[in-house]
Design a protein around this nucleic acid. Sequence first.
RNA 1: GGCCCCAUAGUUCAAGGGAUAGAAUAGCAGUUUCCUAAACUGUAGAUCCAGGUUCGAGUCCUGGUGGGGCUACCA
Length: 596
Amino acid sequence: MDIELMLKKAVLNAVGKLYEQTPDEKLIQIQKTRKDFDGDFTLVVFSLLRISKKPPEQTASELGEYLKDNVEQISEFNVIKGFLNLSINKSFWILYLNTVVQDDNYGFIKNKENPKTILIEYSSPNTNKPLHLGHIRNNLLGYSVAKILETQGDKVYKVNLVNDRGIHICKSMLAYQKWGKGEKPSKEKKGDKLVGDYYVKFDQEYKKEINDLVAKGQSEENAKKNALLILEAQEMLRKWESKDSEVISLWKEMNQWVLEGFDVTYKNLGVDFDKVYFESDTYKLGKELVLEGLEKGVFVKKEDGSIWVDLTKEGLDQKILLRSDGTSVYMTQDLGTAHQRFTDYNADEAIYVVGNEQNYHFQVLKIILGKLGFSWSEYLHHLSYGMVELPEGKMKSREGTVVDADDLLDEMTSTAEEMSRELGKLEGYSDSEKKQIIETIGLGALKYFILKVDPKKTMTFDPKESIDFNGNTGPFIQYTYARIQSIIRKANDRGIELPIEINSKIKISNKELQLIKLIYSYPEVLKEAANDYSPAQIANYIYDLAKEFNQFYHDHPILGEDDKSISEFRLYLSKQLGEIIKSGMELLGINVPDRM
RNA sequence: GGCCCCAUAGUUCAAGGGAUAGAAUAGCAGUUUCCUAAACUGUAGAUCCAGGUUCGAGUCCUGGUGGGGCUACCA
């Protein structure tokens, strides 16, 4: 029952009858009527003037008359300038609500005929330092987009590619070897934090050495290359590649610490993966693809033996694919893993959740795969999200200006606790219940704060001003849900049983109508969010829904309403709004509490 | 230097080429004998600049200004 499609056809028909010319379907623009005007759907007639050959107002009026007379669901119309506002029978909307109530997963596509297999890679951390706010955005986005895509009936696999090898890993290993004195992870300092500290330590010592060398007369450039520390780190990488047992065992131990640390963060964040790949297993993949490409003449070999792709025709640069010593670079391994993934899962589409600083990399990756003749390169999508910035600019690990993921999570929980206590909300709850509610609220505030922003956009986070709990926030929505559940509990206590169907003849207010129309939009919102890979669209929709509900709640008694049919209708409406809030929040990875 | 992205109330975010640019927060002024006041109501406040395309531009095009990113035989 798609009313918009029906209206479109009716308009097409009406234009044909009135002006004896059938317009291109694209000229029919039907949109939802804006709040401040009367009506449910609006036809913009400007594009039809060429056919009607009459002024906008007249065209709109003529069409309005015709539609009102010929379309059963249209009860009224009004014309403002070139906008024809159509009102749909209220009973239609009530009947619509009836069908929604009976649908368990309202808005989701079920039993899709040819479901796609979609891979989504997110998180992809380096094992040399703990996760920070930027990673949080990545993780929340990846997890949420996966859920959103599933609503469209497709099969989605979440994968993580752990970046566990390379010079940056050797830096923290070397620093640990030199200054670690056998320190082990503890309750006070979990593994990723410990390893991260040595990564910072390396950088400090390295900088000192560079300064010393510069003081002795070397150029800064040379000093960077000649510093003993970096030479030692490079030597360590060579040992790692040649599987030196001592280096490998230290590497394994330290990586394990970090991964265990990450697991705690992931668990607290509530994200997970269907499969975890390690770059140490996959970094050699892709070499063959490059050699194949060389044979086909897609790539070129330079005198020193390094292999390149020339993208100057595409308006880009030359890009190295294999070093002169035959080892792989980032691009090489990404070519390999892309290929492996598409074959492993027989995937139709692959999404990479990676920051926009890598736009160039993914642009190149896609072009190269295309040049190699893989038709699926077209279905490789870089979900490029904006950086999270502090008021003073970008976060920098080495300058200690990062917002640590674990610290932030803890802070959110304690703020939630403080606020709950101040508001006197926690009285009468058991300790475990309190803990659960507080965590749900704190985490909800953080997740919503991040996901409500369009993924593509750079966002600002001010650590000094803690994340809000009032207004357009996660807790506001959670509170609305808890309110609804409270009403439902009370209804149950009073033994109120809902009829199977809502009486479609009752009178409903504008606010109630507005709420039903919002419910009607949900499937469309999900579709758009999936198309755009944008949890923000769901977040903003749910906020709107919650806000409208609170207004409705304020001046419409639900259980206190004397007219039984109306009371039942409002209860139905509230219940359904609760369901959608829950459903939408779940898609954002946010839990909703029954009370708070 | 070259390439890419961004610019909306004091601040953080919205706005499928459509009507009077929405919220939140901070500010000011209000609402609890009534289903949870983490709520609701009122008030004030914004499209970086200059051109262009269009019936219609925050949105599209050109130029400028300001900010960010990429341009590694790092990942």
